[in-house]
């Protein structure tokens, strides 16, 4: 049985794949934020302050990380009702985050900042980087919905924690990614 026990000590291949994929996503955002810095240093850069709503969306996504953490905990403890509640809360907070981000851009638009067509790169970079991040959050929401509906399938009693943990890792990752982006934009605006 030696080989089986050694295999179990290793990280699950799917989990590991998620980590490599996150490395890949990091490179995409690293590429974009360095492009932002390079372009900013060339001048002709419009100055405007970040929308206040971004603070609220930050609170929402941090809170969702907490509920995600509690969801994994209750899944492991096999408390299904609490698990469902926490997954629902995470999903709603994730959606709220995306809506708040969109609202932030609406605010900018009201302030007279051109966002896409004919915009200054300062604004269009903000839209694209934030938008791409929001898409990643929405991808996470889809994954949450999948494991959420799985939890309601009473026929299948699947206690494998792996998919839940993978989604949770990803969720914390997009949270951390936003905090990085928020600090990055805060420092460069």
């Amino acid at each position: 049985m030696a080989s089986i026990t050694t295999e179990n000590k290793r990280i699950h291949p799917h989990k590991f794949t998620m980590w490599v994929a996150m490395g890949s996503i990091v490179m995409m955002f690293a590429g974009l934020t360095s492009a932002y810095l390079v372009r900013r240093s060339l001048g002709n850069w419009q100055e405007f302050s970040l929308p206040l709503v971004f603070w609220y969306s930050t609170v929402a996504i941090v809170a969702s990380s907490v509920t995600m953490h509690l969801a994994v905990k209750s899944f492991k403890a096999r408390e299904r009702v609490r698990y469902r509640q926490m997954i629902t809360a995470t999903t709603l907070l994730g959606l709220a985050f995306a809506v708040l981000q969109a609202f932030g851009f609406y605010q900018l638009h009201l302030q007279g900042v051109t966002l896409i067509k004919g915009s200054n790169p300062a604004a269009s970079f903000l839209v694209i980087i934030t938008g791409l991040h929001a898409l990643h959050v929405i991808g996470g929401v889809v994954a949450l919905l999948i494991i959420f509906f799985r939890a309601y399938q009473s026929k299948v009693k699947n206690y494998s924690v792996i998919p839940v943990e993978i989604v949770s890792t990803y969720w914390h990752f997009v949270d951390a990614l936003w905090i990085y982006l928020f600090i990055f934009f805060g420092l460069t605006h």
């Binding site: 490599v20 490395g23 890949s24 996503i25 490179m27 995409m28 955002f29 690293a30 590429g31 974009l32 492009a35 372009r39 896409i116 067509k117 004919g118 915009s119 200054n120 790169p121 269009s124 970079f125 694209i128 791409l132």
Partner: peptide, 25 residues
């Protein structure tokens, strides 16, 4: 590949916006 293709992808996203949505990257 995993570390460099995403950067190309970022470049393509900006290019698509320049082509079709009137940005000036």
């Amino acid at each position: 590949g995993v570390l460099s293709f995403p950067v190309l992808f970022s470049g393509f996203i900006l290019l698509i916006f320049d082509r079709h949505f009137g940005t000036s990257f």
